[in-house]
Simulated scan of single mutants.
Amino acid sequence: MRIIKRDKNEEEIAEIFGIYWDEERNQTLFLGMTDKYSGVYVYSESEVEIIDPNINFRTIYLSGHLPGIFH
């Protein structure tokens, strides 16, 4: 899965390996990696556009305080 985050003069494409839901804040969040950062970054669904919705890797579902699917 890939997303794009657009700022004023920049575009950032990230490869996503986790999606989780913050039910208290009613948000969907993506865990991703990009060349811009040297680690994992959290993207809010409201800040990004999904450019490739395919999840072409094995996932597991974790329930709990922040339920989600992860690679």
Score class of each variant (00 low, 15 high):
residue 42 V to Y: 11
residue 1 M to I: 04
residue 47 E to L: 04
residue 6 R to D: 06
residue 16 I to D: 01
residue 53 P to V: 05
residue 24 E to A: 12
residue 48 V to S: 07
residue 19 I to L: 07
residue 10 E to P: 06
residue 64 G to M: 03
residue 44 S to W: 13
residue 38 S to E: 13
residue 32 G to Y: 00
residue 53 P to T: 02
residue 22 D to Y: 00
residue 32 G to S: 01
residue 68 G to L: 01
residue 58 R to G: 07
residue 14 A to M: 01
residue 40 V to F: 10
residue 71 H to S: 14
residue 50 I to G: 05
residue 60 I to E: 13
residue 52 D to V: 04
residue 2 R to M: 10
residue 70 F to I: 12
residue 45 E to I: 11
residue 19 I to D: 00
residue 61 Y to L: 09
residue 39 G to K: 03
residue 25 R to Q: 13
residue 51 I to A: 05
residue 53 P to M: 05
residue 30 F to C: 02
residue 12 E to S: 04
residue 28 T to E: 02
residue 48 V to N: 05
residue 40 V to Q: 13
residue 27 Q to A: 02
residue 59 T to F: 04
residue 59 T to Q: 06
residue 20 Y to E: 06
residue 4 I to T: 12
residue 58 R to Y: 04
residue 37 Y to I: 01
residue 41 Y to E: 15
residue 8 K to C: 07
residue 12 E to K: 10
residue 42 V to G: 05
residue 18 G to R: 07
residue 13 I to Q: 02
residue 36 K to N: 08
residue 71 H to N: 14
residue 52 D to N: 14
residue 43 Y to R: 03
residue 29 L to C: 10
residue 12 E to Q: 14
residue 53 P to Y: 11
residue 15 E to L: 09
residue 71 H to F: 12
residue 7 D to P: 02
residue 44 S to A: 11
residue 24 E to M: 11
residue 35 D to F: 05
residue 56 N to T: 09
residue 51 I to L: 05
residue 25 R to K: 15
residue 24 E to P: 06
residue 64 G to D: 06
residue 13 I to M: 02
residue 62 L to S: 11
residue 29 L to I: 12
residue 53 P to Q: 09
residue 26 N to C: 07
residue 23 E to L: 09
residue 7 D to G: 14
residue 70 F to K: 03
residue 61 Y to E: 13
residue 57 F to P: 12
residue 30 F to G: 00
residue 4 I to G: 07
residue 71 H to A: 15
residue 55 I to D: 04
residue 23 E to C: 09
residue 11 E to T: 12
residue 71 H to D: 13
residue 1 M to C: 07
residue 32 G to D: 01
residue 20 Y to K: 11
residue 44 S to Q: 13
residue 43 Y to L: 02
residue 48 V to A: 03
residue 41 Y to W: 10
residue 30 F to I: 03
residue 55 I to K: 10
residue 33 M to R: 15
residue 21 W to Y: 14
residue 22 D to Q: 00
residue 55 I to A: 07
residue 58 R to S: 12
residue 4 I to H: 03
residue 36 K to F: 04
residue 71 H to Y: 15
